[in-house]
Design a protein around this nucleic acid. Structure first.
Lengths: 235, 235
DNA sequence: CCGGATTGATTGATATCACTATTGGTGGCG
DNA sequence: CGCCACCAATAGTGATATCAATCAATCCGG
């Protein structure tokens, strides 16, 4: 997760960010520094720091005389984990989850193949233990622990791909899984089919079978995508 | 491209960012605000704004008494277009290009399929014209114009996918293509095979043939990946 | 009615001060 | 001798005041 020490500008961001991310301000809407100072009861220094961060995420532009203007959605840095979290907290959650899962569907099968192909053998072997514990805690209905293992599982595979960009998506996947659990979009008991598929992926990666790993992972993510399409919780 | 008006803190970032991104400072290395003020001859406010941005990109953490410390690479927001640009400007360029292209290889085929499947028909039809102009300018050796068209082509497909995350990757692909051209990693005349493949993708998308579009796009990106593997310029 | 000078609102930048948290040392105690 | 509690130095954090630069909007002359 991203670094979050409790500074004032972070507290401003924690309110402003989600509000803009949720579309509460139309593109083009202009804030002023003075306005922010007043609204949040903070100094100019702090307000400017917050604005600089929003600016670096592409949410706003700050120009003299015009103020701080909200940019259209297409300019946002949609891969920024913080922005993803903000959006998942807002009203467009389901839509955001759908597009994130489509991304996962596009990427994770290939990552699983790469992991099986060129991950270090010892680390590849460790995946099975994670999948086994997932099965146990899943059947026991321990949702929080299950989530943590699920995150660890997918993160590990992305990292084993040996590709820095794919590893970087681990943050994204983490946000998705956290959101699915904390917003109660997971079934109380994971589907047995999904658990089996995770085991299949784990073994295929361990045994260096890219095609099997890829196919099983594809089954996992498309299953989730289908479930989300029906607005029902999948795994 | 990201917004870049010439503020002082941006000038600080333009030096500090690439330096950190290039690994000139080992993880754990600590700056102080005072040091930055002196080194860049700027006020504390400006130095702090720059640090806040670096912090939001995961490059550093700022803590009282400890200073501003460089974080290990795995914590960086590797999808941030600005960070990508900084890294492509540094010494690890080829490695960065390789991982970016592996990402493209994982994502773009699927995006092409989605574009063929559910993009608006009129926009899908426009792709062919872009591909045709690519062929013309490519054969004429007009590298800059070719690059712009190439960018437009791939961006259009990502946008037609109708998925916000995939559209977001357009920035990444743009940085890659700009870097390939400006650092002279493109062949002076694009390979005819590559030009034909772009035409194939364009027509398949226009005609709503996901499988064809996906296969042709896969051929494009794997060809590039192979070329990069041999350290030779591909298309 | 059009174009260019004027202007005032708003960000950009600096300087300085008080506050706070963290760390690392220091001295006392077991 | 080692462990723990306390203290002080240090660096970021936050506030305030002030001036410079910019530029959208307005106004005025031709």
């Amino acid at each position: 997760m991203t670094t979050e020490h409790r500074t004032l500008h972070n507290r401003v961001l924690a309110v402003l960010g989600p509000a803009i991310a949720a579309g509460e301000y139309a593109p083009g809407h202009a804030f002023t520094l003075q306005g922010l100072e007043g609204d949040f009861g903070v100094s100019r220094t702090v307000a400017r720091e917050a604005v600089r961060v929003l600016e670096s995420m592409g949410l706003v532009v700050s120009r003299p005389r015009t103020g701080i203007r909200v940019r259209p959605q297409r300019d946002w840095s949609v891969f920024d984990p913080q922005l993803i979290r903000w959006r998942l907290a807002g009203s467009g959650r389901m839509e955001q989850l759908r597009s994130l899962n489509e991304l996962r569907a596009a990427v994770e099968p290939g990552a699983a193949a790469l992991a099986a192909e060129r991950g270090p053998a010892d680390e590849r072997a460790q995946l099975e233990a994670v999948a086994e514990r997932m099965t146990l805690t899943g059947q026991a209905g321990e949702l929080t622990t299950f989530m943590e293992l699920d995150i660890a599982f997918h993160r590990r595979i992305l990292e084993l791909s040996g590709n820095e960009m794919l590893s970087g998506l681990a943050e994204v996947v983490t946000e998705v899984l956290v959101a699915r659990t904390s917003y109660d979009l997971m079934p109380h008991n994971p589907r047995p089919e999904a658990l089996r598929l995770h085991m299949t992926v784990a073994r295929a990666v361990r045994d260096g079978l890219p095609d099997v790993a890829e196919a099983a992972m594809r089954a996992i993510v498309t299953e989730v995508a289908d479930a989300l399409r029906d607005d029902a919780p999948g795994c």
